[in-house]
């Protein structure tokens, strides 16, 4: 095929096409991110995110940042490498939260009748803002991966404490001490999700004077660093513009 000829002649037309492209492609990007990222997240860390009585100091803090960084890293590659746009992480996390809120309100509350306060998703925007801003300031995947991802893991718990702390106030109930979150899990019957299925607070907790959170958060940050680089790589692989004659 010869040289592709242009379909337009003026700068004004060109601008109009560019605008049209943005108008339709950006919604496509947003929708596909909500869908793909949400299914990824719900099936890797969903249980911790669904229920208030899963949000513990060990597993939730460790798992969420690690599995949450996959898509932001991939989109950092796509949007930064090809467009110099530093919003991949925020787009992912804001999109995920939008998808989660719709489902929590319409399905968990509107269909299964759980109280909304029991199924509020984790707050993940601050981590995303940090990752994006480190990329913008440093203009480097390396710096973002090492420093940004570490902060990403570290601030997850403190960023959520303002939301979950009220549910960790103790209650005496039928002779037991429970947190309010535990009590909600017990009160609002989940026939298919018994108490023991919660993956929470395991281990002997004999570290740093029982301060479990900093260790978990630090570990999450550490793994997030590696996960970030792996996922920049996967983002790169999936953004490859390969053409073949035949498959």
């Amino acid at each position: 095929m010869g040289v592709v000829r242009s379909a337009i002649t003026t700068a004004e037309q060109q601008h109009r096409v560019y605008k049209a492209f943005d108008w339709i492609v950006i919604p496509i990007v947003v929708l596909v991110i909500i869908g793909a990222f949400h299914i990824h997240f719900m099936l890797t860390a969903g249980d911790w995110d669904f229920w208030i009585d899963w949000k513990d100091r060990r597993w939730w803090v460790t798992i969420t940042p690690i599995t949450l960084i996959f898509f932001p890293a991939a989109l950092h590659y796509l949007f930064w490498q090809h467009f110099r746009l530093p919003f991949g992480a925020t787009l992912c996390c804001a999109g995920l939260l939008a998808g989660e809120w719709v489902s929590r309100v319409v399905n968990f509350v509107g269909w299964a009748y759980y109280p909304l306060n029991m199924v509020v998703p984790a707050e993940i925007i601050p981590m995303a803002l940090v990752l994006d801003s480190v990329l913008l300031i440093s203009r480097s995947f390396l710096v973002t991966g090492v420093i940004g991802s570490m902060i990403w893991g570290l601030i997850f718990y403190p960023a959520n404490w303002a939301i979950i702390a009220p549910y960790h106030v103790p209650v005496e109930y039928n002779g037991n001490m429970m947190s309010i979150a535990d009590l909600m899990g017990y009160s609002y019957v989940r026939t298919g999700t018994p108490e023991y299925i919660r993956i929470i607070e395991e281990g002997t907790l004999r570290t740093f004077g029982e301060s479990v959170v900093p260790v978990s958060a630090f570990f999450a940050g550490f793994i997030s660093v590696f996960a970030y680089f792996i996922w920049v790589g996967i983002g790169k692989a999936l953004a490859k513009t390969i053409w073949v004659k035949k498959l």
Partner: peptide, 13 residues
């Protein structure tokens, strides 16, 4: 997103 998470709200209940 929508119906996949709804599946959780059914099967966990």
């Amino acid at each position: 997103s929508f119906f996949a998470e709804q599946d959780a709200s059914w099967h966990q209940v």
